[in-house]
Amino acid sequence: MEALEEKLGYQFEQPALLENALTHSSYANESRDREMQSNERLEFLGDSVLGMVVADYLYRAHPDLPEGDLTRTRAALVCEGSLVEVAQQLGLGAYLKLGKGEDAGGGRTRPSILADAVEAVLAAVYLDGGIGSARKIIRRFILDREEEKGASRDYKTALQEMVQRESGQVLTYRLTGAEGPDHAKVFSMEVDLNGATVGQGKGHSKKEAEQNAARAAIEALNR
C-alpha cells in the first residue's frame, strides 16, 4: 500500500479506507468475514466528488464556455476511458483485491473495474483528508492532463486554415474590454471575419482571450 500511496502523493491516516477502496465485490463475496465490504459504496461517493471537482474547475477556468460545452468537457474527463488511464498510470490493477474467478478472468485489466476503483480511491482520499486532498489528486491525474491537451490546441491557426479554404477571407481580432485588478485581469476579445463578428472569448491574457474567441468562432462556423 505504501507504494500506491507514493504514486498518489498522499499518505492515509486511515489505511483501512484505501484497503476498502481496492476491495472488489467478488473478493468481499468470497471472504469468510461477513463484515467485509466491497468498494461499491466508495465508488458511489467518489463519482460525486470527481464530478463536483471537475465541474468547479471547468466553470472557473473557462468563463466563456456555454453550459453545453462544459457538460461535454466534464463528461470526457470523468468517463470510463479517462479513469482507466489514471488507473494504468497508478498501476492500480496490481493492488486490487479480486475474487479467484474474477482474477482468473482478467479482472485486473477490466476497464469497468479499474474505473470504479479510481472513483473509490478518490472517495477514500476525500473521507480521509477532505476535499482539498481529493482535489489535488484529481488535479494532478485528470485536470492537468486536460490543460496540457488544451494548451496544445492552436485555435487561431485552426480558424485561419478553415477560412482560407476560400480566397479573400480576412480575420481580425479586437480587444473589447478588460476587467478586474492588474493581478487578476480578464480580457475580452472578438474575432471578425470580413468585418462581421464570428466569435467572442475571455481570458487572463490577451493571447488566451484570442484563442478562446477563435475556438468560439470555429464552433459557430461549424454549425
Rank of each mutant, 00 (worst) to 15 (best):
E102V: 07
A94C: 09
S82Y: 04
S82L: 08
Q88L: 01
G101N: 10
A124S: 08
R135P: 11
V163I: 05
R135A: 15
L92W: 02
G93Y: 00
Y173T: 12
L58E: 07
V54Y: 06
R139P: 14
E102Q: 09
G132E: 05
H62A: 08
A76L: 05
A76C: 03
E80Y: 03
G68C: 10
E147K: 06
G81S: 13
L77D: 05
A104Q: 02
E166Q: 06
E102P: 01
D69R: 07
L70G: 03
L92D: 12
V54H: 09
V170F: 06
V125S: 05
E85S: 07
C79L: 08
L70F: 01
P63H: 14
L114S: 06
G129D: 12
G101W: 09
V118C: 10
H62N: 10
A87V: 13
A94E: 11
R153G: 03
Q164N: 15
Y95N: 12
V86E: 13
A61G: 03
R145M: 01
D154W: 15
A124L: 04
S82G: 14
E161H: 14
V86F: 06
Y155I: 01
G168V: 13
A87R: 14
Q89S: 06
V170T: 07
I137G: 05
V78L: 03
L90V: 10
Q160A: 03
